[in-house]
């Protein structure tokens, strides 16, 4: 099943990288523009901070997903280092992935509730009149990715357990 999803996974990884590249450029460019505008040109444009914040929120969430994809989130790895056999390592991998998946589902529920309440009481970003769900949608994006990557890790864990049991 994982192999059939692989092209999709790669396309998503590319998307994450492009989001990171574009939003990094936006945040840097807008803040430098603010300095140049104020210090040299005596310009003031409404909403530069607000647009930077929208871009930054998407940068944060794309970055968090890149870390999930590469399994680079910070962990205390004292226990994993004690595990020597392939089987116990696979079991540990499954356990951590399942816990992560459950917690990611909570994250999904909270984000859903935020968006649902936002539909009831819609807001805009002051100074821009941009709907608040535009930056908030980055959290939904993160939720979907986190649940997907946690599921991937669960399946990968079972696969390595099966492989370890064969030997």
């Amino acid at each position: 099943m994982l192999s059939r999803l692989a092209p999709l996974g790669q396309a998503f990884a590319k998307l994450l990288e492009w989001v990171a590249l574009i939003t990094s450029a936006l945040v840097t460019g807008l803040l430098v523009f603010l300095v140049v505008g104020r210090y040299i040109l005596n310009w003031s444009i409404v909403g530069v901070h607000e647009i930077s914040l929208v871009a930054a929120m998407w940068l944060y969430m794309a970055g968090a997903l890149i870390a999930s994809r590469r399994r680079e989130h910070l962990v205390v790895d004292l226990l994993p280092q004690q595990l020597t056999s392939a089987r116990s390592r696979a079991r540990h991998q499954i356990l951590v992935a399942v816990i992560t998946l459950v917690i990611a589902c909570f994250f999904a529920a909270w984000t859903y509730q935020m968006l649902a309440w936002g539909m009831k009481r819609p807001q805009t970003v002051p100074g821009l009149s941009l709907p608040l769900w535009v930056p908030q949608a980055s959290l939904a994006f993160a939720v979907i990715g986190c649940v997907a990557y946690a599921s991937r890790d669960v399946i990968a864990g079972f696969k390595s357990l099966a492989a370890a049991s064969k030997h």
């Binding site: 910070l74 205390v76 004292l78 951590v96 816990i99 917690i103 990611a104 994250f107 509730q113 309440w117």
Partner: peptide
Amino acid sequence: GLGVPVAWSFAGLVAYLTFVYDVNLNT
């Protein structure tokens, strides 16, 4: 200690706190 990533361990604590305390999930 189990090796759950720090971010998710903290999210797990948030989940626990929503059950113990009166937390409005809308906000």
